[in-house]
Design a binder for these strands. Structure first.
Ligand code: ZN
Ligand code: ZN
Ligand code: ZN
Ligand code: ZN
Lengths: 137, 137
DNA sequence: GATAATTCCTCCAGTGACTAGAGCTTCAAG
DNA sequence: CTTGAAGCTCTAGTCACTGGAGGAATTATC
């Protein structure tokens, strides 16, 4: 039996976050000690590690909730789980694309400034006028 | 003299967002009509376009506040403005790096699933065990 | 066994940058 | 002069936590 602090140390998930996940229904409400403190077992540890890893990969809580629900039915086909991951990959790629456009534009803006006065600062001028930009963003 | 709705249409910034920027001190509190409605002039339009563009480039509100303050002193050197942009570029690049790692890992995970049952689903298994991952993330 | 230090509990508020709604007032067109 | 659109303020909700207050329980030390 682990206390919430033990669980936290083993998974790297902070104590208030564990309580938050319980509130959000990602983990079941833990058993309590006589003095009302949460007590966890191995399967709680596994589930929390699952959640942590999914969060680290950028999945949001509704997606994780769905993945947990799916994982309860081992005999079902996994198309939905695969789709969740694939959708997330698409979202990640879209974010990368947007950020690359920003990177490109920022590089250009910064390199165009000769670094003298604010009056001539290309950073300020570029911000004032999107017309100076090369692409959309 | 523009109403807040006119300003909104011309800059693409939504009406409640304009009021929010006023509250955050990014734009000065506008003059008011007799009936207490905000009235704007050309320079408000320019400033709001500046803010909008800076936000589109991913700068946060404290950074924009600082850039606005700097732009009020045309004779000062622009090192601080350039630094804000450069710092932001660094942050953008870091985000891209993280997302690329996620992209790589997600690609790998998805491609390893044969798409049959949840029991064998590589997506679920990979989420359960970071040890199956190639890199950190 | 008493005390002290640590951990735990619940509840509430704050983060960033908006966004939406309720309930009311003002404005512009016809 | 009426009507409907647009404006006003204030409050609360978004997402995924994070931190603090104030108090109870547990664990360690003496
Ligand atoms: Zn400059
Ligand atoms: Zn631009
Ligand atoms: Zn699968
Ligand atoms: Zn991993």
């Amino acid at each position: 039996m682990l206390s919430i602090g033990d669980l936290s140390k083993r998974t790297g998930v902070k104590v208030p976050t564990i309580r938050y996940y319980e509130q959000m229904g990602l983990i079941e409400a833990a058993e309590r000690s006589e003095g009302n403190q949460r007590r966890y077992e191995r399967n709680d540890l596994e589930r929390l590690a699952f959640i942590r890893h999914a969060r680290d990969l950028g999945l949001d809580i509704p997606a994780i909730r769905e993945l947990i629900a799916l994982s309860q039915h081992p005999d079902q086909p996994c198309a939905n789980a695969d789709r969740i991951a694939a959708d997330h990959l698409v979202a990640v790629r879209e974010k990368i694309e947007k950020l690359k456009k920003l990177e490109h534009e920022l590089e250009r803006i910064i390199s165009h400034c000769d670094g003298h006065s604010i009056e001539d600062c290309y950073v300020i001028r570029a911000l004032s006028d999107h017309g100076l930009c090369e692409g959309e963003h």
